[in-house]
């Protein structure tokens, strides 16, 4: 029985420790401030990124990994005879999935199964971690791919942006165009649906936005796990975690949005990724 190896991109925001312990290969995207280019997680930590975001006059930009980088990874992993499941950021938000697809075609000797999660950050990360755990358990590729498909209806993400500037400037505004240009100071609440940033509602205050997020958690409770993600706003993240706690049966953790997601969401972003407990899926 051949081993299964999991590949993802750095936009999945999975904790470095989990990546290491589960043997996940994380292909980094890069972030540029002006002429200076950084590789996410290699020479740019989240903390360094938010410091730059606050201090650097340039708006950052992101770049997907090269096809060549994916080819290297696939070639190397396939040499040990492993099958590869390569799990990525929404193809509607980034060219990363496309680069991985091209690379897979260029390395015919590697058996690569590509997964477009149609989401981002830890919502993508949830698929990656679940797959990696099953792989570590010695489960076959088919079972893992089936489990990933089964997860799709259970994973959701909702977030509040402090401002629409970054998502608009980065061109990832998707279906939320209708939320820009508001003269009133409002907090846009967004979700990712069918791979795109989608408007959900507009809240007048942060407190109200947090309450709305908690009400979504309640609607879909019980949650088997939840991950609060923030753009360098740890105190608000703690507040949100406290509101979510009653609806979460398993893990509830807090983490910082990585540099790539942070580039498009901006500082002050707050949200969470939830996974509905098995059997709790209504609709």
């Amino acid at each position: 029985m051949s081993k299964v190896r999991i590949v993802t991109d750095s936009a999945s925001d999975i904790p470095a420790a989990a990546a290491e312990s589960l043997g996940i290969t994380v292909v980094p995207l890069s972030v540029q401030f002006g002429s200076k280019s950084y590789t996410e997680r290699v020479d740019l930590t989240s903390n360094q990124f938010y410091a730059l975001l606050a201090g650097d006059p340039n708006f950052p930009k992101t770049s997907q990994p090269s096809v060549g980088r994916f080819e290297e990874v696939y070639r190397e992993l396939s040499q040990s005879g492993a099958e590869i499941i390569s799990i990525h950021l929404s193809s509607k938000l980034s060219g990363t999935f496309n680069a991985a697809t091209l690379a897979a075609a260029n390395v015919p000797e590697a058996r690569v199964h590509l997964v477009d999660t149609l989401t981002a950050s830890m919502a993508e990360g949830v698929y990656v971690l679940a797959a990696a755990r099953m792989a570590a358990d010695g489960q076959p590729v088919e079972a893992i791919l089936e489990a990933i498909e089964a997860l799709r209806s259970r994973v959701f993400v909702i977030f509040m942006l402090d401002s629409m500037t970054h998502v608009q400037r980065g061109g990832r505004i998707g279906r939320a165009q209708s939320m820009i240009g508001t003269l009133l100071n409002i907090k846009p609440l967004l979700v990712i649906e069918d791979g795109l940033v989608t408007p959900r509602q507009r809240a007048r205050t942060t407190a109200r936005a947090l309450a709305e997020m908690a009400s979504l958690a309640k609607e879909r409770a019980p949650l088997s796990e939840a991950h609060v993600m923030h753009g360098n706003a740890p105190r608000v993240a703690e507040e949100l975690a406290a509101l979510l706690q009653p609806f979460v049966q398993g893990t509830l953790d807090i983490d910082t949005l990585g540099a790539v997601i942070g580039t498009h969401a901006g500082a002050g972003t707050i949200g969470f990724v939830g996974v509905q407990a098995e059997g709790a899926v209504h609709s």
Partner: peptide, 9 residues
């Protein structure tokens, strides 16, 4: 400015 456009909901 916020008129629903072809690309927004």
């Amino acid at each position: 400015a916020a008129a629903p456009t072809g690309t927004g909901d």
